[in-house]
């Protein structure tokens, strides 16, 4: 999902940066509020950040014969709400832009928007919906993380199609091409991310049941102490 440095026209680069900035700012505010009011949740905040670090470093092969990476943002979005993941995702993307030449400073805003904003919001929304539909806990987590991951890559495809519409077919034709590169490749990886997130939540509900209740992830009756 990294749009390479310089590969978005100036107007688009600026537009996505302006769109992302308030989310990152509000996310910073919400994270620092969490740390101040509930310092015991720092550990879980660390877990969410660490998970994103690991997963976005793993480039995995896909059935399409290309490689891509999961995002790991679903976990933190389910725990702390979608806003908290904007600054955390931004840190990971900045690390990769500065040191790895993956993504870039000019495309940072667009990449933050797909991975650290759309992905977490989708994951959070899907989790709440699935929970309201009374699906089993593991299924809720899986769907949230997998769809958050997949929609991140759909967003990247939309961003590139908006910037580079096909001369003949326009936005739709261009979107179809970029979505083949990104979204289709991503399907097995999104499933992997969903499964890995369930594994972490199994451990969380064993070791940190009280925090999960405090964060309103589960109701008290769902966790056996």
């Amino acid at each position: 999902m990294h749009i390479m440095e310089g590969f978005l026209p100036v107007k688009h680069a600026i537009g996505w940066s302006i769109a992302s900035a308030p989310f990152v700012a509000y996310g910073l505010y919400s994270v620092s509020k969490t740390i101040k009011e509930k310092p015991e949740q720092r550990m879980l905040l660390g877990v969410a950040t660490a998970f994103t670090f690991v997963l976005s470093a793993l480039k995995m092969p896909s059935v399409t014969g290309s490689c891509s990476h999961p995002t790991g943002t679903g976990l933190g979005a389910i725990l702390f709400g979608p806003a908290a993941m904007a600054p955390i995702g931004a840190v990971v993307l900045l690390f990769q832009a500065l040191l790895l030449a993956h993504g870039g400073i000019t495309t940072l805003g667009a990449n933050i928007f797909s991975m650290a904003i759309v992905g977490p919001f989708v994951a959070f929304g899907v989790y709440r919906l699935a929970k309201a539909a009374k699906l089993p806990f593991g299924v809720c987590i899986f769907l949230a993380a997998a769809l958050g991951d997949l929609l991140t890559y759909v967003t990247t495809s939309v961003q590139l199609a908006l910037a580079f519409p096909d001369p003949a077919g326009g936005f739709a034709a261009s979107f179809a091409k970029f979505a083949t590169v990104f979204a289709v490749t991503q399907i097995p990886l999104a499933i992997s991310e969903g499964l890995l997130t369930v594994i972490v939540f199994n451990a969380l509900s064993r070791f940190n049941p009280r925090e999960l209740q405090e964060l309103d992830v589960v109701e008290s009756r769902e966790v056996q102490a």
Binding site: M1, H2, E5, V10, F178
Partner: peptide, 25 residues
């Protein structure tokens, strides 16, 4: 098993052959 990011870059140059990236890492 090439990176999807690179494939997207190639696709951009295919759709808009005269696009030149205006910044470098």
């Amino acid at each position: 098993f090439e990176g999807a990011d690179n494939q997207a870059k190639d696709l951009i140059t295919e759709i808009v052959p005269d696009y030149h990236p205006w910044a470098e890492s």
